[in-house]
């Protein structure tokens, strides 16, 4: 059961971070739960191969990207309505600020949400996001800037666009 032990350790060490990322992308705790379980199920399917990867977490995030994108496309026609809906309650109800942020995130293009989730929820630098996404650092800066602007427009917070993290 060496593989199972290794996998369980990997799950224990990384699943919480993946849940943050999935929650950031979807804004939905139940979706985040499902996506995390599905991503790790797929990881276990090919664990022999995946365990040799340098960045297994990046692989998991890409699985979550694709699955969440599929969901997003399916829900696309309901996007405007969904943006106005309060997300379902997780185990611990989110604060009002969190509800507002989720609602604002839902109005953004996926690529902006992904960059914001990596930057703010997983503490990834611009260079790291660029490496993971295959984009230039300039493009990542643009995603983050436009993401913040989009959030500010919805949140109505005039100070939000001047995020202090560009210096990374």
């Amino acid at each position: 059961m060496k593989d199972a032990d290794e996998f369980d350790n990997f799950y224990r060490d990384t699943s919480r971070r993946l849940a943050r990322y999935a929650y950031g992308l979807t804004g939905d705790p139940a979706d985040a739960q499902d996506l995390v379980q599905e991503a790790y199920a797929r990881a276990w399917q090919r664990w022999r191969q995946l365990s040799g990867y340098e960045d297994q977490e990046a692989w998991l995030r890409l699985v979550v990207n694709r699955l969440s994108a599929d969901r997003w496309r399916r829900l696309g026609v309901r996007r405007a309505r969904a943006a106005a809906e309060r997300p379902p309650l997780p185990a611990a109800p989110p604060s009002e600020d969190t509800v507002l942020l989720i609602r604002a995130l839902r109005t953004l293009p996926m690529v902006h949400r992904r960059a914001l989730a990596l930057h703010y929820l997983l503490d990834r630098s611009i260079a790291e996001i660029a490496a993971e996404t295959g984009a230039s650092t300039g493009t990542v800066k643009s995603w983050l800037s436009r993401g913040r602007t989009g959030l500010a427009a919805v949140l109505g917070d005039e100070r939000a666009p001047e995020g202090a993290r560009d210096a990374r």
Binding site: F7, G24, I102
Partner: peptide
């Protein structure tokens, strides 16, 4: 605040993911 809410989302056990896999 969002990270805190995400951290409170209950996750299944690793064994469940393996079973699903």
């Amino acid at each position: 605040g969002l990270a805190r809410a995400a951290d409170a989302v209950p996750l299944g056990a690793a064994e469940r993911a393996r079973c699903r896999g």
